[in-house]
Write a protein that binds this DNA or RNA. Structure first.
Length: 255
DNA sequence: ATGGCTACTTCTAGTAGA
């Protein structure tokens, strides 16, 4: 079984690509999506189910929105962090094949002076509390999604250009480190990887062609799940297609 | 170099993404 995450930057635009990708990746049991940008009443549930999948989702108009598409039933779904009052839909938690999946679209933060930056840090605090509680209940757990954090300098194509800004600021990286301190591991870094591996490239300035990207989409795993994990890769293929998302899928193989 | 590119909504120009 494989689990995956993909920020699709509008499911309305990318649904055909998502269905094609699932068909091309038959071992993927569950795919977490971010930035669906669709309110629940217009979510393409019927199309996804007609293609043979289970789906759970929590969306809003224009911004954010998360979903899980799976080849197995999706159980015990929780939307957002209970008790954390958040009008934005950025978190979906569910169990698929006995694995607890937390699909996250962590806030971008915009810049260090923006109101969105303290929102990002508060959001990360709430996520950390939720992670801690879920880990106690579900030993086999993965946190998958768009973290909007490049954990290390090697995850940034040009650290001089990004240094001191959002996505790499010390408080954000400390929040990431605190996830690791809970016992989680960055599945991608658990294996040998090519240098300059990224999961996002700006649409502008031929960034993908120049591989001027960031690694901000991650799969963190609990010890019990990491023990079952044999690989973790970034799939750059969809970024080459017509009208791509600016993010690419990240896939982990289990068992 | 504050541009560049894409998606969205509806003051089709302005916001947001990262």
């Amino acid at each position: 079984m494989k689990i995956a995450t993909w920020n699709v930057n509008s499911l309305k635009v990318r649904l055909p690509q998502v269905l094609d990708w699932m068909a091309a990746n038959p071992e993927v049991t569950a795919l977490c999506l971010q930035e669906t940008k669709m309110d629940d009443p217009v979510f393409p549930q019927a199309e996804i189910e007609a293609a043979g999948y289970h789906v759970a989702f929590a969306g809003q108009k224009t911004y954010n929105g998360v979903a899980i598409i799976a080849r197995a039933p999706i159980e015990d779904v929780v939307i957002n962090v209970p008790g954390f009052d958040d009008p934005q839909k950025r978190l979906i938690t569910a169990t698929v094949n006995g694995v607890r999946l937390i699909g996250a679209y962590i806030p971008n933060g915009q810049d260090l002076e923006s109101d969105k930056y303290p929102y990002k840090l508060a959001w990360l605090e709430a996520l950390l509390q939720w992670l801690q509680a879920q880990l106690q209940q579900y030993p086999q757990l993965a946190l998958l999604g768009d973290y909007n954090i490049a954990p290390e300098d090697r995850d940034v194509h040009d650290i001089k250009k990004w240094a001191g800004g959002v996505l790499v600021s010390p408080p954000e990286r400390e929040a990431f480190a605190r996830m690791l301190a809970l016992g989680l591991s960055d599945a991608f870094r658990h294996f040998e990887q090519p240098e300059k591996s990224f999961s996002w490239w700006d649409y502008r300035g031929f960034s993908f062609k120049k591989n001027a990207g960031l690694r901000i989409d991650h799969i963190l795993m609990s010890p019990a799940l990491l023990a079952r994990c044999s690989s973790c890769v970034i799939d750059v293929e969809p970024r080459k297609h017509e009208r791509p998302s600016d993010h690419t899928p990240v896939i982990a193989t289990l068992d």
